[in-house]
Design a protein around this nucleic acid. Structure first.
Lengths: 232, 232
DNA sequence: CTTCTTCTTTACGAAATTTTAACGCCAAAC
DNA sequence: GTTTGGCGTTAAAATTTCGTAAAGAAGAAG
């Protein structure tokens, strides 16, 4: 039910091990993205900005220690290192380079999960990344604060209304089909219930539009879906 | 507070081992205070407010896990656990109770030092991590003194109330989900018990708000969580 | 042992949200 | 002119979520 599911990046070249960890962590409610090389990992970090990185030291292209160092030049994303090597200086080096934790293989997945939780607990005390917002015309939505503004006015939305608006504003300027909206807000089994959309679009217009009957932002694409754009 | 002058509390009942660790860590430039029992440790934490705690799980008086739990009722001080036991559930339990790291004996002191550095690095980066107090509107909370003020009036809170308020005020302006609150105040196994939140939010409103029925600060986000904000 | 504080549990009414249902509008098709 | 299908609005019932009070349980302090 929780809206905030952390996004984890798993950098691991062994496909079988990667799959095992992915499914385990997904079962814990995390979102997972993966990379199989150091270079790919660094790119994914830039693009997706995960909340935490699980990094295997033994990578085919770059030395894992080097991955940590390059990451730490510009990012403070928490890093948990996995490694088959359990030499002292390997561990201290990884930590001194900027890693937050180090597990030697073989390890228990339960322990990994608890360590991920512990680290996220520490880090999410930071209200950072707070500037993530979308804006279309006068409508501004701050996802992390879960706050919606129309001009200066603060508008309070119900969970469904908020989810609906989030999806529309992410695709601002483009049509989002009925099917997409129903599937993402209510779930795949609600694809038939397209009258839900009419009701909630009505709510949103009522709360966000100056003249709900003649919407400026929340536009109808008859037979297709809805589109959010500044139709001023 | 420079990292090198950080004050570490070492809770360890074996005098010889305590001495060994003390001198090693002092050589690293840390200030050290020690305690040999759980009770003593808890007192020292209150009096000296160390920057980090190294806690041996095997204590003569209280169970080490219990020490972690009681600490976490009112303090966010980072904790590294040492233990001879390396059973999985012992580790996960300690981490889930709120510890940040876990080392099994025997361990290398070099690794311990690197882990201390890593944890201190992480913690001092958190804006407000070492902050003495937070303020939102008339509500002011002094973490180290464990003091809460509404204007000039001093308000006394129970441990759970204090914990709840400090989480909310650290995220002032942001919605904190039920899940986050339950997990951080009561622990991961209480995620279902969301009625606890209603009861304690009620207590907080009663103690902090001018009109508890129409809260100005402690706002409800129905279906999602709560938010502390100057809603004047 | 008693007292006090705090936490947990239970119960119930109120409020907010979601779902269901019904009706009117309009434009295109027959 | 009537029908039809997509859309918008409104109102209500049903469900979920919230807030409060109060009593029992567990611990700490004296």
């Amino acid at each position: 039910m929780s809206v905030n599911k952390a996004l984890l990046l798993l950098i691991e070249d062994d496909p079988q091990f990667q799959m095992l960890l992915s499914t385990t962590l997904e079962n814990q409610g995390y979102q997972i993205v993966t990379a199989t090389t150091g270079k790919e990992g660094l790119i994914v970090v830039r693009n997706q900005q995960p909340n935490l990185i699980v990094l295997d030291l033994g990578l085919p292209d770059i030395d894992g220690q080097e991955v940590i160092r390059s990451l730490r030049k510009w990012s403070e994303i928490p890093i948990i290192v996995l490694s088959a090597r359990h030499q002292e200086n390997e561990i201290t080096q990884a930590l001194d380079n900027g890693a937050d934790d180090y597990l030697t293989k073989p390890f228990s997945t339960a322990v990994l999960i608890s360590r991920i939780k512990a680290l996220l607990r520490r880090v999410t005390k930071i209200p950072g990344g707070s500037q993530e917002y979308f804006q279309v015309g006068e409508i501004k939505i701050e996802l992390t604060k879960r706050l919606v503004l129309v001009g200066e006015r603060e508008v309070s939305l119900t969970p469904i209304e908020f989810k609906l608006l989030s999806i529309l504003i992410r695709h601002a300027g483009f049509v989002v089909t009925h099917r997409q909206l129903l599937e993402q807000v209510w779930g795949a089994s609600y694809i038939e219930h397209s009258h839900y959309l009419r009701i909630y679009m009505g709510h949103l217009r009522h709360k966000l539009e100056a003249d709900p009957a003649r919407p400026k932002y929340l536009l109808t694409e008859a037979g297709v879906g809805y589109r959010l754009q500044d139709g001023g």
